[in-house]
């Protein structure tokens, strides 16, 4: 692998994504992408006593599913990169504690999935691993409980707020295979434009997405039209519009082939999700369920997957801190 430009890495031996798996909650099961997910749950508890246990079970079962789909299991898997939103990443570590695979807990808020894939690709390209598992999860109820208010509180959600996706996505990366391949990555910088409103995460993360996007084009010399699709993680309706307009002021027109997982996963009108979906599982399930299938079926051949994260927590927002954003991009090509 080698670095090109300021922050992009091109892989000499691009890892292949062997297979993916996704499990989603009931609300996502009523959304426009429902038919693409591997499993749709009927209730948020899934037989568990707490939201946290339910989230752990979702990521655990998703990981089991990707192992059986890719027929790569147990000791054949060298490492695992996983992370989530709960304090100290407990969903991932509890969910994966029985897998017996060397485990890296990663945190990049909602960008975790792609962050994990970036790191995994480096290990595979460098020859340190053959198969690596990447997974992430989020749960509406556990996230609301940790970051916002109890579910039974009778408050109103402002129109800029986003709905945390309940679910988990997992991808199995390998050193050889038939593709699609992760050909390069552009890890993002932390960008903070001073947005403090934790009910407007899309706006807080959009500048980070812009920074990564433009750097990626400059570093690689590619144009937006190089890709069949440019996809961000969870900017939502507001963040998506901001990114399109701000990219235009920098001379990049992404209107035609750009979309956002948070926009795709829910139907804004009928599901009352305001600015769209968010959470680690937003990009995790949408990529694993929908986009991976599109790549496999060759309906899409080149995509830029850019997961966005808001690097904040409940304490920092109570202390009036602004919300730093981050966006990690990987190019996935057939």
């Amino acid at each position: 692998m080698k670095k090109v430009g300021t922050q992009t890495v091109m892989f000499d031996h691009p890892p292949t994504i062997v297979d993916t798996a996704s499990i989603v909650g009931p609300k996502e099961s009523q959304g426009p992408l429902a038919k693409y997910f591997d499993q749709c749950l009927e209730d948020e508890f899934w037989g568990e006593k707490t939201w946290e246990k339910a989230e752990s079970k979702i990521i655990k079962e998703t990981v089991n599913m990707v192992m059986s789909k890719s027929v790569i299991t147990g000791e054949a898997i060298d490492f695992c990169f996983a992370g989530d939103l709960l304090n100290q990443c407990i969903s991932s570590s509890f969910g994966l504690r029985e897998t017996n695979i060397p485990f890296f807990g990663v945190f990049g808020a909602c960008s975790t999935f792609v962050e994990g894939m970036c790191l995994a690709s480096c290990l595979i390209d460098g020859g340190a691993a053959t198969n690596i598992l990447c997974a992430t999860s989020s749960h509406f109820c556990s996230a609301e409980k940790q970051f916002r208010f109890p579910l039974e509180l009778g408050n109103q959600r402002p129109p800029t707020s986003q709905w945390t996706v309940t679910g988990a996505g997992a991808a199995m990366l390998a050193s050889s295979g038939t593709g699609p391949y992760i050909t390069c990555m552009t890890p993002g910088k932390i960008v903070d434009m001073g947005i403090k409103d934790s009910n407007n995460m899309g706006a807080a993360m959009a500048p980070a997405a812009l920074q990564t996007l433009i750097t990626h084009f400059k570093d690689t010399g590619r144009k937006p039209s190089y890709y069949d699709a440019i996809i961000t993680g969870d900017l939502g309706h507001i963040g998506k519009e901001i990114l399109i307009e701000m990219a235009e002021t920098k001379g990049y027109n992404i209107k035609n082939n750009y979309n956002d997982c948070g926009v795709l996963i829910f139907d804004k009108e009928s599901q009352d999700t305001h600015s769209g979906g968010s959470g680690c599982a937003c990009v995790g399930t949408t990529f694993s369920g929908y986009f991976f299938r599109q790549l496999k079926e060759r309906k899409l051949n080149k995509i830029l997957l850019m997961a966005t994260g808001a690097l904040t927590n409940a304490t920092s927002s109570q202390q009036g801190e602004s919300i730093p954003g981050i966006a990690h991009a990987i190019a996935i090509e057939n």
């Binding site: 129109p159 800029t160 434009m193 947005i195 407007n200 901001i242 701000m246 002021t249």
Partner: peptide, 19 residues
């Protein structure tokens, strides 16, 4: 639209974009 440089410009722009 003009390119946005400062946090203040961005904040004003976001307020305009947010319903």
């Amino acid at each position: 639209m003009k390119p946005i440089e400062t946090n203040q410009e961005y904040s004003d722009y976001v307020n305009k974009k947010s319903p």
